[in-house]
Nucleic acid binder design. Structure first.
Lengths: 345, 345
DNA sequence: CAATTTTTGGCAACCGGTTGACAAAAGTTG
DNA sequence: CAACTTTTGTCAACCGGTTGCCAAAAATTG
């Protein structure tokens, strides 16, 4: 089965089990030069149909697989894209990861994942390390500063999700549509004062969302205050409940769903009825947003699509195309569930 | 162009931006042979302290980084481990991914992620592809059959999570402790008949859990029936609600939390009060299990720990140690929340 | 101080592909 | 049929590290 003509089996390697055929093995079997094999396998049309066939058969017989490293060494191409997220436990990133993985592997690219643990420094290090081994890099909600990002982008194709960086391809949910839907819906339900619970100071998105809320509130002639949270988690949401009550707002929009869920839990524990006494709107429509009672109304960002888009942009750039010069905007939309509604007395 | 002659800058490469120093650049700068540089940088103690210093300084000055591919080519070592999960959207895997990523990167290994989309065939293909580029592979709840797994394991170190495969290192939550706690707690609360909602037929775990439930129920002298679900998701949980009601059971243990959540939603929508009329216990304690009202009682599997353990085993094997000959068991425990309790009338 | 052992650094051959240059073979054209 | 163009396969030089082998240098010993 293995090799017919010459005596030796393909080179042994590893801990001495399986072997792996090389183009040299194929060349020997097919009676051609290794470089011809290389061309047959990667430069379509460069060799005659006849030789092509012979070589392909030989490759199939030997169960050949290119050695990615041997290929990467001279070419630099690795068929790999890197994804860096701030926090793997944060469900916001789940959909991004999935979108990226799916789109990537459909095009025969493998996803390499790294986490920055929310630290800008770790992030830079991880990015540097990754960048040398991948064809392109996706930064999801990066914490590092713009200059670092541009420095990375100067080296290899980089795409950014959830943040706008001048000169670097970005995929950013356009919050305005979703927010204005949310605010209009709240206004229509009789709310007059709303509160925005902000996320981490260094997050680019927290500012964008507050801008959107403020603008929409003005337009609808509602009062709007910004409250700070200690951290963008369920716990942070619980802690901010007191401030929310003191603010006198009857509707709350939070920086993300986790805050909303924590807030809702704490308010309900304190006897408030949602949405009769207070409406809560989250952000992102993460996994589990509909597990709550009432289910959470939220502004959905199409995060899976962000992942998909980012990969697509990256792969396009790898083909030699230019990245988009404007940030790619994906639409957000309000998902109305039970946690927002008419204000009862 | 690079090799000989005078004061050229390090080789340009890529789309003509940054350059990357090689050991040859360092060698030239330090006035030694490239092989000495290689040794200084990877074989501690092989060169004299003095030369070591000179080389390290030169490396630092040139801002040197090894080229992972060049290193991988002759050695086969890639500093990379692969993780294959059945479904990236399934929150069960989130913690596994995170545990693996964290432990891996602490030891300077990068995680490469792939998804099998629940298909045994895709899984085998992904595994094969990954295996050639990583030092070791983790299979989380694999869908392929035992022989395929053993074949992979013959090639390179492989660790399996959530399933036991003879001859391959496995990390498996020991469901018995958690289940017996759950069943005893239900019995103590006056329940006499319980139902187990099973997961996918091909899942090894669904059988183990049913075995556990059956045994514990017998021990506590409770009746136990097994019900099938169409799919292990929230939706599957909703669909099985009718069967649950018809079974007459007053307590339900489900294959996983998603089923439990869907079931609870559906039962509540139909007017049942949880836990007054029916108790629900899930499995895994996934993200969001405490978002529900009442919060979900569940048997927690330490999934993050599974990821960590699997990586540790793998890295140990890469050091030349043997893998554990017995499956590594991690403890499960009952997390009592609001969805289970005393049966009222 | 010579003989011997231990360190240390250099040489060169890999690892498994890719690719520019070139010549042989095949195909066209006058 | 010769001259010329195009196609196709081969040669050899990389890519950037690692490593076995050997000799020069340094350290140890008689």
């Amino acid at each position: 089965m293995t090799s017919s003509g010459a005596a030796t089996a393909p080179t042994k390697r590893g801990r001495g089990e399986k072997s792996s055929a090389t183009i040299y093995d194929i060349a020997k079997l097919a009676g051609v030069n290794p470089s011809t094999v290389s061309r047959a396998l990667s430069k379509p049309g460069r060799v005659s149909a006849k030789t092509q066939k012979i070589i392909e058969d030989a490759a199939a017989e030997l169960n050949y697989q290119v050695n990615p490293f041997a290929r990467a060494l001279p070419t630099g191409r690795t068929q790999t894209i890197g994804l860096i997220v701030a926090d793997i436990t944060n469900p916001t990133f789940f959909d991004i990861i999935r979108g990226a993985e799916t789109t990537g592997s459909a095009r025969d690219y493998t996803l390499v994942l790294a986490e920055s643990a929310e630290s800008p420094e770790t992030e830079v290090i991880a990015a540097r390390r990754l960048l040398s081994t991948v064809d392109g890099l996706i930064l999801a909600s990066p914490r590092m500063d713009d200059d670092h990002i541009r420095a990375l982008a100067a080296d290899k194709p980089v795409a950014v999700i959830n943040r706008e960086v001048k000169g670097v391809p970005c995929v950013v949910p356009d919050v305005n549509k979703g927010i204005s839907e949310a605010v209009r819906s709240l206004a229509a339900n009789g709310h007059e004062n709303l509160a925005y619970v902000a996320g981490p100071k260094q997050s680019w998105m927290t500012a964008r969302r507050w801008d959107g809320v403020k603008a929409a509130a003005e337009w609808s002639k509602l009062g709007a205050v910004r409250l700070e949270s200690s951290k963008p988690t369920v716990d942070g949401g619980r802690q901010v409940a007191r401030d929310v009550l003191e603010s006198g707002a009857t509707a709350v929009i939070t920086y993300n769903d986790l805050l909303a869920i924590g807030l809702m839990q704490e308010l309900q524990a304190g006897g408030m009825r949602v949405p009769d006494q207070i409406s809560i709107v989250g952000f992102d429509d993460i996994f589990g947003a509909d597990f709550t009672t009432p289910a959470l109304t939220t502004v959905r960002s199409p995060l899976g699509e962000c992942g998909t888009r980012a990969v697509t942009i990256l792969l396009d750039m790898l083909q030699g195309h230019d990245g988009p010069d404007e940030a790619v905007r994906v639409e957000t939309e309000l998902v109305v569930r039970g946690s927002s509604g008419r204000l009862l007395a």
